[in-house]
Design a protein around this nucleic acid. Structure first.
Ligand code: SF4
Ligand code: SF4
Lengths: 133, 133
DNA sequence: ATTAAATGCTACCTAAAGGTATCATATATG
DNA sequence: CATATATGATACCTTTAGGTAGCATTTAAT
């Protein structure tokens, strides 16, 4: 019942950037602020660039800034980019072939819960996270 | 947002055994029925024995049977045994140190959802799964 | 121009989850 | 007793997520 470490890193980075939009964030800067392993963070930032969340500028004073409004970046998008949302769409109990003829006692509960979670992740943007600050 | 493959295997095995309590299940038998890798399954069964869910008998015609009532084995117990429930008790967004002074927009939602899930897992037993069959 | 500081790329390393192989031991049955 | 079929234990292999290293390229400051 958890997101991968990589997803967590991504959320952490993008959330930090959303809260500090006045600075152009270099990998090195983010590394110092967030204590994410430097080289791994760099890979991750490149990936987030490729996936269109942020834009990079190279050379001295370079770094990363958002390439679209943070109100348009939803948590589900970030998760989708790093680990996919597929795991949210499977049987809660991990069965690939459901062993029950009709349903087990968990089924309705899980379908409902899952829907609530996915809906939440699809509607909460990086901006929403901050607003309540 | 998923249980480990090993947890899924465990649930699969114990659920099958709960639905077929008339047979003494050997590792080999379960392997054929559930297509779980044979040796890995054996390790897993031994673990489930040590953790008190099932009891093993060795030798010809040996195998595994429940060592307590299936109405007393809750899904949370099984998950706890294979991967622990700790991941259910963390920030949904994977932050170890919450970066928000008060809360972010997800916090209350997640605390509530998490509680519902854990409660469900702690109250649904192997017997409950079957009853609705 | 030179240098410092940044990203792009890519090959490699490590740790943990998942999976295999094998020997020792137990037991029912012919 | 001999054999077939179980589990116990344990060492090892494989795959994948996570992490490191280093060279090439870009750009600003001097
Ligand atoms: S009925 Fe139960 S086991 Fe089957 S798919 Fe739904 S939650 Fe999974
Ligand atoms: S407020 Fe948000 S980021 Fe902080 S612990 Fe709660 S869910 Fe996580």
């Amino acid at each position: 019942m958890n997101l991968t470490k990589t997803t967590s890193y991504s959320l952490n980075v993008l959330n930090y950037m959303a809260q500090n939009r006045e600075v152009i964030c270099s990998a090195n800067y983010l590394h110092e602020k967030l204590k994410i392993p430097h080289q791994y963070l760099r890979q991750l930032l490149t990936k987030l660039s490729k996936d269109g969340f942020i834009h990079s500028t190279r050379g001295r004073n370079g770094g990363f800034v958002f390439s679209k409004k943070i109100s348009e970046i939803f948590l589900a998008d970030i998760i989708e980019s790093t680990e996919g949302l597929d795991s949210f769409n499977k049987c809660m109990l991990g069965f690939s072939d459901c062993p029950f003829d009709s349903k087990c006692a968990m089924h309705d509960f899980w379908v409902d819960t899952r829907e609530r979670i996915i809906n939440e992740l699809k509607t909460k943007s990086l901006e929403d996270l901050i607003l309540k600050k």
